[in-house]
């Protein structure tokens, strides 16, 4: 295994987080927004992994395990979110024949 400095992983995760955030804010298609949310959550996963890696290198295995554990939980939660969110999109599609979020923006000031 090539040792990867954890700072590089942090950098990558920051970039991914920003991509994800931009996606949520700028995309119009519901599925695309959803994908961006997943990217955000996974970038958090990467941060956990990066710090867990660092802690493992320093020999604190228990602490590293806590971070790795968190990753699993985030993955599970993301899956649950997927289920709920997609169900929501289906309901919207049934009513509005589209999942373009701009079209579902009735409520204003």
């Amino acid at each position: 295994m090539i040792p990867i400095p954890h700072t590089w992983v942090l950098l990558l995760s920051a970039v991914l987080f920003m991509i994800g955030s931009m996606g949520v804010l700028l995309r119009r298609n519901g599925i695309a927004i959803f994908l961006s949310l997943e990217i955000m959550l996974n970038s958090a996963n990467l941060v956990f992994a990066a710090f867990a890696l660092k802690l493992a290198h320093e020999g604190q295995m228990a602490a590293a395990a806590a971070g790795q554990l968190f990753v699993f939980f985030i993955i599970a939660v993301a899956a649950a979110e997927a289920a709920v969110g997609l169900a929501l999109f289906i309901a919207i599609h049934r009513l509005k024949e589209s999942i373009d979020v701009d079209r579902l923006n009735i409520l204003r000031w």
């Binding site: 995760s13 987080f17 994800g20 955030s21 949520v24 519901g30 927004i33 949310l37 955000m40 959550l41 970038s43 958090a44 996963n45 941060v47 956990f48 710090f51 806590a66 971070g67 968190f70 985030i74 939660v77 979110e81 709920v84 969110g85 929501l88 309901a91 919207i92 009513l95 509005k96 979020v101 579902l104 923006n105 009735i106 409520l107």
Partner: peptide, 26 residues
């Protein structure tokens, strides 16, 4: 439905922030 969608997107967005912040605090 609009309320549900908005709450979902915003809520999931917030969860992303929370998770990332938690990772940094870790």
């Amino acid at each position: 439905l609009e309320a549900g969608l908005k709450y979902f997107v915003v809520g999931a967005f917030a969860s992303g922030f929370l998770a990332y912040g938690a990772a940094l605090l870790y």
